[in-house]
Nucleic acid binder design. Sequence first.
DNA 1: GAGCCGTGGAT
DNA 2: TATCCAAGGCT
Length: 365
Amino acid sequence: MSSAKPSKTVPGTASPLLAWYDRHARVLPWRISPDERAHGVVADPYRVWLSEIMLQQTTVQAVKPYFAAFVTRWPTVEDLAAAETEDVMKAWAGLGYYSRARNLKRCADVVAEDHGGRFPDTEEGLLTLPGVGPYTAAAIAAIAFDRPAAVVDGNIERVFTRLFEFETPLPSAKSEIRTFVAAATPADRPGDFAQALMDLGATICTPRRPACALCPLTGDCQARKSGRQEQFPVKLPKKAKPVRLGAAFVAERGDGAVLLVKRPDKGLLGGMTGLPTTNWTVRADGETGAKSAPFQAEWRSKGVISHVFTHFELRLEVFHAVVTAIPDHEGWWSDSDSLPGEALPTVMKKALGAAYPALFRKGKS
DNA sequence: GAGCCGTGGAT
DNA sequence: TATCCAAGGCT
């Protein structure tokens, strides 16, 4: 239940917002500026789609270099469809949420093979694509095809829960928010409208200390009127993150190459490259020491690295050994030339950094 | 609906 | 240091 009353329209919202956007739109590599759009420049659906997938739960700053690398290497959806999944995973390494990368490749294949290389231009059609959910379908429909879709992301949730003081905690309030956004979305410039709301949420209507004095909607905002703008959105309390323990093993061959393995396609770090590890368990038992190594060697501890995942914290003890006899073990040996290009998630680079401080500093390659 | 799924920057 | 959280989707 919400204290906000349903309404068919949101008077005065679209016009001042778009006027603000015309002056203050962020300049982003995947974006058509409001001026360009007004002069008939059309967005490239491939770039809009790629950016929207990368931006899921990920900051603009983190996405920028990945977006540039992808569009340089794979300028069109056909190019991406022709790529090897393994190369896509390598290019995605470090960005997180790796199921996005697999779905990205699957989606490119579907668009290339089933849709003649053209993205569906309706929300319903886009929703059928792998990795494209309600938000992304609406965003692509609005931004790439200028359709009046109700785009609701985290920014827009924050803006609307403040405008109308939604007391219902997220995520329960989502459907109600969507109704309000749909009512507010104009038939004219729906793509710019959605991007304007997101820019407003990112730069003015921020989670903490929103700059209400600079907001084009400040006169329409109920939370601002009552001075409770920082109380919204209301969210359910979060669960504490348990700690899991484990061990990782850096086996070095005589020539310096390191043994790597491919992780299962599903689950944590699915489809990515990693070091051989134990299972990661909440119990500090015999499965976390050198004796749990995949094969016999002169294992020496190189310390414990800590890494925080979405739903648990990992403390990983890293063991290193120079192996003389080549062990019978799955995987491949990667030398110093190929190692930086492997599909290694950040936690694995951290573990390698414990064994080779000079090569992997702070988890970077 | 709720759990799973990464990472790095800001405060 | 601890906490939050950023253009969510899948199961």
